[in-house]
Design a protein around this nucleic acid. Structure first.
Lengths: 348, 348
DNA sequence: CCCATAGGTGCATACGATTGCAAAAATCGG
DNA sequence: CCGATTTTTGCAATCGTATGCACCTATGGG
């Protein structure tokens, strides 16, 4: 069989092919596909027609090489068990797509060397910016990105370094809101199963919560780290229940709160909110499911993502722009997992 | 201020810089970083040293331009509400990272023109392959990818076209297993709230289920499309309960099953599994949560992802390789949401 | 000790686009 | 209708790397 290969016919069509077909120069083709370039209407039309016939589309990679921008954003994420992240990720991807960017995903579970390898790969792809939604990114990431001139925005994550941009919810205010709500509900023995205390989100929520209690002269009856892990939080809840008999528990995020509720109900035989009130943080979709009906502080994922995209693109446009830290306020969503103060509706 | 810009110092370091620093040619540098190229050990060492000092890393985009492979895999996904997808996505990304590939995410909710735009962008990035986990990808995707010579693997999705590779669980067998289990449990009035009947997953599960019932001469007492949407399924469940009083319901996936259970319990006051058994499909993490404790057919996400990656990479290596359709068997995971036949343990 | 062979290395080109510059064409005012 | 602008267009260089080819250097066998 000496037939010429079929595949030859479908070889890549380049701007040169289009130029030839349209009888113009290659640069003309390029300009037609470069927004803001100087092209006459008739030229544009001829080229577009030829391009359409040949099925031509500009090669983004080649373009990136010369413009120095890949229009790729690196997203570093740890795990996706916590529903908040898939939710945010979907929004982020959509928002960036609308701006002509795309998301390259990097899953980096651990900390340390594995993470550093990922960082290297991130830079290899010449990403224009990075959204870091993973705890445990070594500080080296930031210095290397700084050196490479790649803007980084921390999503739902804080960092002491002022040169780092970040978008979070107002975790301190959120924690305090929960305290005020529980106090108004007449709770006296209030416990806290916190988010991981190695991260600012967990610490700030806890701090705000304690501050809120302290305003009424109260201390948490118990406080333990749930590590943002369902199973850990569930075990802790059981232990706290048996040891301290709290009348309310504030859990550092919804994902853990579901585990806590299950442990209380099915292992301890506790009725929620009759015996104990439970409040979470995030307002993921499942919080509204009847099985949990969880009172929780909403993180406005939409606005957080919007802010993230805005900051990131601004820094890409204008590299010298100073870092910015944004905390977005979120309302307490009152549902059925915690006793509601009598006069709550009147108050709010 | 006529100071030279600080930024100048951090300008990109290229293979030429490394070559100069090491006193060798640029091609030598390239070879050192190209696995399988011919380089002497001493050369390799000199170059690596210089590279390390300058902080050089090869530019993946430039490399892609010349090799014609980007080492980017496009992942097209619809929504991430169904936990099965984040779970699978995390695995997929990890598996591909291990092979030196990375995932570029495309969220395409709807069908039709929006999707086609996304397809265009996908091709613009010169992805080496595509994993399609979204329903409603127009057939045009496939023809265009075929033309462009880009392999596509459908993940958890079927398609009549034999030229398309796909990885699914064995949906027919899974549906039948559920039927057998429910029959063995002595259920007589069995309903089905199916996955979207526009997709093969939904249809196959339903067909297998019906076949299983038919083996015992039974028909579903009711059968309706839940569209893979929680709210739709919940409403349908309520309607079916009120109209048909089933003693068991097989729901087309876990995500809907949770909604169904909530509707039955909290709207209809039904006790599960005492009044009615519920069985799902997927075995997402939440299925094991005590609140649902859902009996369900496991989709082995790990194996499905593994197969997907294997097939995709194989087709990238060897473009003429024929398409392959794989259905991975998954066990029925017996939990507490459905009555368990007396002799079940003996049987299995 | 010499020649055939294999393995390393450098030169130069190619990948597919963007973009500064200069020439050509179109526009405009007088 | 002509000269001065302004707009279009083409030419050619460039981005950072991979790779065919030719050349050079060891190596080993006879």
């Amino acid at each position: 069989m000496l037939m010429p290969r079929e595949r030859a016919t479908r070889d890549k069509v380049t701007s040169l092919d289009v130029a030839a077909a349209a009888g113009v120069s290659q640069s003309a083709v390029s300009r037609v596909f470069t927004p803001g370039a100087s092209v006459s209407p008739k030229m544009a039309e001829r080229v577009r027609k030829a391009a359409a016939e040949l099925g031509y589309r500009p090669n983004v990679l080649a373009r990136s090489l010369i413009t120095g921008r890949s229009r790729i954003i690196g997203l570093v994420v740890a795990y996706l068990h916590n529903q908040f992240y898939p939710e945010a990720m979907e929004r982020l991807s959509n928002a960036l797509q609308a701006e002509g960017y795309h998301v390259l995903v990097f899953v980096a579970m651990g900390r340390g060397p594995e993470v550093d390898k990922v960082i290297g790969e991130l830079l290899d792809y010449q990403v224009d910016g990075i959204v870091a939604a993973s705890v445990g990114l070594s500080d080296e990431l930031f210095t290397r990105c700084e050196e490479a001139g790649i803007p980084v925005v921390l999503f739902n994550r804080g960092h002491a370094d002022a040169r780092l941009s970040e978008v979070t919810s107002d975790n301190f205010a959120g924690g305090r809101k929960v305290a005020e709500f529980l106090l108004a509900g007449g709770h006296k023995r209030i416990a806290h199963i916190s988010g991981w205390q190695g991260a600012t989100t967990g610490r700030d929520r806890a701090a705000g919560f304690r501050a809120g209690l302290a305003a009424d002269g109260l201390d948490p009856v118990a406080e333990q780290d749930g590590m943002y892990k369902r199973e850990v939080a569930a075990d802790v809840a059981q232990a706290i229940w048996e040891a301290d008999r709290p009348d309310a528990i504030f859990v550092g995020n919804d994902h853990m709160a579901f585990g806590v509720m299950d442990a209380l109900r099915y292992r301890c035989g506790v009725s929620i909110p009759h015996d104990v009130s439970v409040v979470g943080y995030d307002d993921v979709q499942a919080a509204a499911w009847e099985a949990y009906d969880l009172t929780t502080v909403r993180q406005r994922a939409g606005r957080m993502v919007e802010a993230t995209v805005r900051m990131l693109l601004a820094q890409i446009e204008e590299p010298e722009r100073p870092a910015e830290k944004i905390a977005i306020d979120g309302p307490l969503i009152v549902r059925g997992s915690a006793r509601v103060p009598e006069d709550w509706n009147a108050r709010v």
